[in-house]
Design a protein around this nucleic acid. Sequence first.
DNA 1: AGCCAGGGTCTGC
DNA 2: GCAGACCATGGC
Length: 270
Amino acid sequence: MDDAKDYTIQVGGLQLAQTLFCGQCFRFEALGDGLYRGVALDRVLSVRQCGDTLEFPGTNKGEFERLWRNYFVLDVDYAALQELFCRDAVLARAVEYGCGIRVLRQPLFETLISFIISQNNNIKRISGIISRLCATFGEPLGGGYYKFPAPQRLAAAAESDFAPLRAGFRVRYIIDAARRFAAGEIDENFLRTAPLAQAGAMLETICGVGPKVAACTLLFGAGRFDAFPQDVWIKRAMEQLFPGGLPKYVLPYAGIAQQYIFNYARATLQ
DNA sequence: AGCCAGGGTCTGC
DNA sequence: GCAGACCATGGC
C-alpha cells in the first residue's frame, strides 16, 4: 500500500546514531528509545532504529523510495565495501570501531554552508549556528522546525542580519557562497562529474572555501565518494597510521574510508 | 586562564 | 611556496 504510513525497511550494518552524529550532518537530535528527528530535504524526518529495522514514522513507501533511499545511500553495497577496506589491517581496525557509520547524500548548498561554518569550530557549536541560521532565514515547517535557507534568501541578507547566529568571521563567507550560488556560478552538474581536482577548484573560488571544506562539500553534498577531506584528525591519523598513504584500491571510496578513520582517530589518538 | 575546535585568508619572507 | 598571525565564539 503506497499510502500506508510508518514505512519500515530492513537495513543491515547501519547505526543511525553513528551516521547522524559523526559530523557529516548537523540537524538531527536523538529523542531516545532509538528515535531521531531532524530536518532534511526540506521536511521534518523522524526515523527510528530497532536492530536492523529502520522505521520511518509518518513516511509512506512512495516518499521513502523517492527521497530517503537515496539520502541514506542504501543503494551502495556496504558489506562489499567494508570487506574491501578490511584487506588492510589498520583500516580494518577503524572499520570495526565504527562499522555502523554510513555516508549520506545531502543537498549541495546546505552541505557547503554547513562546512563553511565548521571551520575552526566544534560540532556542538556548528549545530547551534546552523539551527539559528535556519530559524532566522528558513521557511517554517511547523513544530519549531525550519527548512535550510535558499541561496537567494541568504544572498539578499545584510551582514548585520546574521548577528543573532553568533557565527563570527564566517558570516562574510556564508554570504559570498550564497551570492555565487544565487548567481548561478556554481555548476552542480560539473561538481558531480568533473575530475575531482577541477570540481574542488571551482568550490575554492568561493571566499572561505579551502581544500577541506571543498572536499567535505563534494563528499557529503555531491556524492563524490573519492573526495578525501583532511582535517587535523585525519592528518594525525595519516601520519601515525598510514605513513605510506591509503591503499590504492581504497582510493575510489577514500571519502567513505575517511569517515571510519576520522571516527577512529578522534576516539583513540591523542 | 588558556587552549582547542572537522580551516582559511592575508601578510611577509 | 611556505610559515605564522589572525580571525569570533564557546566549551572545557
